[in-house]
């Protein structure tokens, strides 16, 4: 049907009415103004006749072999001749295309390849993202534990215990917290002053 309705505009001298050609062209090959130009193969009469002839020959041979019982030497050829046997096996397995498609290509894509892509997604790409996030939190923790709390010390935990142990605010202050703060304060001021005086002097 499609072949029939898609007759070329003309074959040699015969031209066909418009209703018989380019019926579905816009579906198989969009021609809207958004599409780039596509060049078409031209209609080739010898080629068309040759392919029709090959098909006709095949049909003829089949007719002779099955309906007329002719072509006796070919009977059971595949059992006698190993080459022909191999040929038959290839033919029975449809040139192994199904095997190639289903088991080799599809199987590989569906199985190992897809799994590998998925593995890479979680273990490589996503791991980088998660790593960046965890890294930031870890840096925060490290700064808090090793810099802020070591040098500056957290009063949250310390207050409760040391105050109850010593029983008074004065003793608590003598335990060093304020001295630490003050020392740091002046040290930072002196350091900044030193650096800037040297840098600008």
């Amino acid at each position: 049907m499609v072949g029939f309705l898609n007759l070329p505009a003309e074959i040699g001298p015969i031209s066909f009415p418009e209703s018989l050609h380019t019926q579905f062209e816009q579906f198989v090959e969009p021609v809207g103004r958004y599409f780039p130009e596509i060049s078409h193969a031209s209609f080739n009469i010898p080629l068309a006749l040759f392919s029709l002839a090959v098909a006709g020959l095949g049909a003829g041979l089949t007719y002779l072999y099955y309906w007329k019982g002719g072509l006796a030497p070919l009977r059971n050829l595949s059992e006698r001749n190993s080459l022909a046997g191999l040929g038959k096996k290839v033919l029975v397995n449809k040139y192994y295309f199904d095997w190639l498609y289903t088991d080799v290509i599809t199987g590989f894509v569906k199985g190992p390849l897809a799994q590998a892509a998925n593995w890479a997604n979680t273990h490589v790409i996503d791991a980088v993202v998660n790593g960046a996030g965890k890294g930031a939190v870890a840096t925060g923790n490290w700064v808090y534990d090793n810099i802020d709390q070591e040098v500056v010390d957290g009063a949250v935990n310390a207050t409760g215990t040391s105050v109850s142990e010593t029983g008074g605010i004065l003793r608590y202050l003598q335990s060093g917290r304020i001295q630490q703060y003050t020392a740091l304060f002046f040290a930072a001021a002196a350091l900044l002053a030193g650096v800037f005086v040297l840098a600008t002097g």
Partner: peptide
Amino acid sequence: LKSNEAGLKYYLMGVF
């Protein structure tokens, strides 16, 4: 006590 500490600490540091 925490509040006393807060005020005193603020005061001392403020003085410095």
